[in-house]
Structures are given as structure tokens and as C-alpha cells.
Write a protein that binds this DNA or RNA. Structure first.
Lengths: 339, 339
DNA sequence: TTGTAAGCGTTATCAC
DNA sequence: GTGATAACGCTTACAA
């Protein structure tokens, strides 16, 4: 049985109030008393019970970071920054992996979840636009959406400008002389905001230089995984007129696509240039190194944490949209080719 | 203000006891009553307060998974499996990132941490052998150590046979005809168990074929990162007599080493064969694909979860050591060479 | 500065 | 099968 505050009080012959004061810090308490109580605490090996404290104060000191899959490099890099940013302001982070399970996500959003031991949620969701809109009984839990969806004014939101990011990537491919630019990651359905926005940016860049987007050059990808990128690239390379560049909606797709190009006996960037989005570390060491759009994950994490903690303090804040910066990183996979 | 159990009881004109029975499930309660209470719950939008429940029952339903860095692919892959295995038995997982901070780790182990809202800990630690041994006031928290350290009989422990794994990797390099086998990841100090054990396996394999390990071929690496692998490989390649194979203590080190070989104008596996440990997905898509020792992360996760939950139920279980299987995966990076 | 006591929202122990 | 009531361990008015 661990010692309780009451045990310490009895042992030290003081009131619980005094012990509590000593434990939780600063309240006026004489130095002699402090020493005395501290010693009692030490001798009994007392540790405050965080659950009791939480019940009393209403704060758990924990945030939930909700992602589809934690082992996707972009998410784990973001998780790292989120954990660090949260620690900075005294919060801990519980990672919740939805595994592409919409019901799980919805339970979280509607507060149906049975074990909500946290003060706020950072949500990198898969939920479709429709699902988000029809969410009729949103939880009172402070919530910040990350990187997906259009800003609809109901939730705080931190994301890059997806249209612009895609535009920048494709524009770079065009600038290096490629003309047959394919895309991997477009969603056939209009359900998800991010792929749709990136598709818009992709087509925008093409049209700007007078190229009409071709349907067969836009390939879907279910999970933005290496395997999906590989599969989509294999299809692209089998076309009569092969693309000379591929814009992948994530670096992971790009890694898969690169491997597919090699397996087809072709080379990157000579035969096919490849660019991704996310700037995962893997792409800095791959051969060739991967050009990409870098998202500032620590900026995203800090802004999200700042926003959710602000909302914990002041629940009625007006939802804001925060746009995170992105940067084009040119590496070997899109090097210009000798003509 | 969210509705409480008491609110529901008053609203439905029944006792709190009855509401609690309905909420927590099975206790005998008439069907009519159940319906009645359920409706009241629905109308008031009542959600049980998990904190209050926890204070009463002493269970949070949460486990902590403690790793140095969550964005290391091996750890994030393991985290994924841990989260899944925990969900399977009704637990959630809080991820705690120590960031190579020994004090943080020690606080966790000694229960000095102020916010321990979990029922048990899975610990993939950095603490040195000495630190672990001198841990004089271990917390009563159920604890399972993952993948590090020797089994000293005080904690449950799930890990591969590190000596054997290293031996298998090096043996494979030797079998393909390489004779100058270097290693990256050895720790100069004898503080950490894993690198030491892998060094033992490395030297064992060499000696078995009559090769005396050379000091200059064994390079340390602080963080098992791509960058450390790169740096160590650069040094190895600058030696008068260049190694013709490198055994890296992690796949991430191997990815860095591979890039260093290319940057030196050499090729893998023709000039230098490379093998790692961990079997991260990245190595299946890299060029060349990376030979490695595969650890069964889902086995490790399941065993660890089974063990920690068992210990939550029955605190006095005798600590056990569970050895996880490993398998050699031969890929392109160690292909045999034409002589 | 310190003591007393009332909750926080639940579950569990007792009756009936 | 259901109803009152005492904990669980802590924080914090309110008193002293």
C-alpha cells in the first residue's frame, strides 16, 4: 500500500493541508515546517496520486495525439515534435492510433470514447469531409485538427497550403524541363480534402505552362505507403507514353515509386524525375536523395500545442486556421538532365 | 457542465447504484429499468468520468511505452504493434519519449514522475547496466523491459538473443566470401548491454573462421542514426585496407553507411556488403535493398503486453525472460560477388 | 501560517 | 433488484 497524504500528515503530526501545501509547491509555509514535512514524505516514500489530483482539479495533464498510423515516418516525426512541444508546457502526450478506423475516430470526436483521460486532442484524421460536417454532437474537448480538411470555422486547424505545396512541387518539375508529369496519391473520390487540394495544385501548375492534365497520369493511392507508391509507379511506367516525372503526394509514395523505376530498368532522375511531400529523413539518405516539399513539423507541433492549451484555459476561443510554411527542397531525384 | 451519475439518477428517479449498474454492464438489473436508465443517459448526454472511475478502481486502463525517440523506425514500428496488442486487451498506450535523458528514465523507474496515470510500463531504455543495478527504490509499477540489458532476474524482460543475432549477421557476410568485416555501433564503454552483446556475437563469428577482430574495424555510434552510420562508414572507407563488408548494429546505421559508400564512389554490394538489424520497411525499398536481421516486433509487443497485464492482475509474479525469435533476411546489399 | 472539512464522480458495501 | 452511504486521495474555501 502506497502512503497517502493523510499518512504523511499523521506521521508528521501536521494537517493534510500543510502537507498538500508543501507537495504542490509554493504556498506560504515556514522553512522549518517544509523541511519537517519533506522528511516525513521521504521516510514514508510518499508519492502524490495523480488520479486523485486530477479528479479534484479536472486536469489530467495529458493530451491525445491521434493519427492513422504511428509508424508512418511523417507522423512519427510529427509525434516527436508534438511530444517535445507538449513537454515544454507541462503536458504529456498519449498517442492514439486509429488504424484507418473511422468509427474509432468518430468515437473520439463525439466523446463516445470510454477512456478519455486527457485534456485536449490533436487530431490528424482520416475522416471524410462529409463525416466531419455531419458530426452533430461534437465533444466539448478542446480539439485541434492537423493537416487535413478545409477550414470550416468550427475547429482550430493547423496545416500547410496544400494547393500551393503541390503547385510548387510540380512547377519545379516543369522548370527542370519535364513535360509529362504524372501524380500519385490523387483520390478518385472527393471525400478527402488533402489529396483533392494537392490535385488542384498539380493541375494548376500544368495548365499554367499550357499542359492539359491527363487522366491516365493521375494515379490514386489508398494509404500513401511505399507499397502503394510502388504499385502506382509500375502502372505509370507501363503506359505507351511513359511520364518523365512523377509528383508523389507523400515521400513514402515517392520511395516506393523510385524503387519501381529501378526495377523497370530505368533511372532516377535521368528517365523519370521524382518529387515527394513531407521531407522525411529517409529521403536525405536514399539514392538518389529525394526532392521534396518540406513541412515544418516543429512549427506545426508548436502551433497546435499552443492552440490546444490556450483552448484548455479559455474554451470559448474563436477557432483559427493556422497555415504552416513549406519549402521546396531540391535534391538528386529531380536533377536537371543533359539534353 | 457535463452530467454526472447523480444527475442521471435524479432525472430517472432511481438511485445512483442502479445507474452505475446499467453503465458498467452486467449486474442484475431488470430490462425495463435498463431501458429507462439508458434513455435518461441519452437525454442528458451523460458520459462516465474515467478519472473518478479510476480513483475508485485504481485502474487507469493506460500503459506507458517508453522509448528514447519515437521517430526511430524500429521504435515506431514497435509502438504500432504495442498499441495494437494493448487495444486487444482493453488498454491504451501513452508514449513517453525520453530523448536520451537518463534522469527522465530514472524518474519513471523510481516512481518520481509526477504524472503517472498508467497501470504499467513497457520500457525500452537507455539506462546503463550500472544505473539499472543501483536503482534502489524501484517503483511498484508493473514493468517490462524491452530489448536491452541482461536479464538480472528483477524485471520481466523481452528481447532477442543479441549475441546470436549479431553472430548470424556476420556469419552470413563471411559465407558470401567477405573477409574484412567491419562493425558500426559498438560502444567503447561497457555501459550498455545491447551493443556489447552484439559485439560479442560479431567477434565470435570472426574467430570461428579464424579471423582475429581488428580494433580499427569496430566503430562506435552514439545514436544508431543514419547520420552516425554515415560518419562511421566514411571513417572505415578511409582506412588503408578498406573493409569489404560492414555489419551495422541497426538498419538505420546501415542506411547511412550505404549512402557513404556511394558518396565514396563505391558500390554495394560489389565493393562493400552491408547488413543491418531491425528489418525496417525502408530497407525493403532502398537500392540496394538491405539485408538484415528481422526482429518479430509483433511477437515482442504481444509478449510484453501479456506480461505486463498479467503482472497488473498478479503483482507478485516471478520475473521472466522471454527471448524473441530473429531471422536472417538476405537481400541485395549482401549479394555474393563474382570473383 | 496552519487546521478543518467539504467536495470531485465514481464504485462497493451494506442493508432491505 | 434496488436504495442509501461510505470510501478512493486529493485540493481548496473557510476558519482560526
Amino acid at each position: 500500500m502506497p502512503a497517502t497524504l493523510r499518512d504523511v500528515a499523521e506521521y508528521a503530526q501536521v494537517s493534510m493541508r500543510t502537507v498538500s501545501n508543501v507537495v504542490s509547491g509554493y504556498t506560504h509555509v515556514s522553512e522549518r515546517m517544509r523541511k519537517h514535512v519533506l522528511q516525513a514524505i521521504d521516510e514514508l516514500g510518499y508519492r502524490p496520486n495523480p488520479v486523485a489530483r486530477t479528479l479534484r482539479t479536472g486536469r489530467t495533464g495529458m493530451l491525445a495525439f491521434v493519427v492513422p498510423e504511428i509508424d508512418v515516418p511523417y507522423f512519427s516525426a510529427l509525434a516527436r515534435d508534438v511530444i517535445d512541444a507538449a513537454a515544454e508546457v507541462g503536458y504529456r502526450v498519449m498517442i492514439d492510433q486509429t488504424g484507418h478506423d473511422h468509427d474509432h475516430e468518430r468515437d473520439l470526436l463525439t466523446g463516445n470514447d470510454r477512456t478519455m483521460l486527457f485534456d485536449g486532442i490533436l487530431f490528424s484524421p482520416l475522416v471524410t469531409k462529409a463525416e466531419l460536417l455531419e458530426m452533430n454532437s461534437p465533444t466539448q474537448m478542446p480539439l485541434v485538427l492537423l493537416g487535413e480538411h478545409e477550414f470550416d470555422g468550427r475547429y482550430d486547424h493547423v496545416a500547410i497550403d496544400n494547393v500551393r505545396a503541390a503547385y510548387d512541387a510540380v512547377r519545379h518539375l516543369l522548370d527542370t524541363g519535364r513535360t509529362r508529369v504524372a501524380a500519385i496519391g490523387a483520390q478518385p473520390l472527393e471525400e478527402y480534402a488533402t489529396p483533392q487540394q494537392r490535385t488542384v495544385g498539380y493541375e494548376l501548375a500544368l495548365r499554367e505552362v499550357g499542359i492539359e492534365p491527363e487522366q491516365r497520369y493521375a494515379r490514386p493511392a489508398a494509404h500513401y505507403s511505399r507499397a502503394d507508391g510502388y504499385g502506382a509507379a509500375v502502372e505509370l511506367l507501363a503506359l505507351d507514353v511513359r511520364p518523365d516525372a512523377i509528383f508523389c503526394f507523400s515521400d513514402l509514395l515517392a520511395m516506393g515509386a523510385m524503387r519501381a523505376v529501378f526495377d523497370a530498368g530505368l533511372s532516377v532522375p535521368q528517365d523519370v524525375a521524382i518529387i515527394g511531400i513531407d521531407n522525411i529523413e529517409e529521403g536525405r539518405f536514399s539514392r538518389p536523395s529525394l526532392s521534396t516539399i518540406s513541412l515544418d513539423t516543429s512549427f506545426i507541433a508548436e502551433q497546435a500545442i499552443a492552440r490546444v492549451t490556450a483552448r484548455i484555459e479559455t474554451p470559448d476561443l474563436r477557432p483559427r486556421q493556422i497555415v504552416a510554411p513549406h519549402t521546396l527542397r531540391i535534391r538528386e531525384s529531380t536533377a536537371s538532365i543533359e539534353r
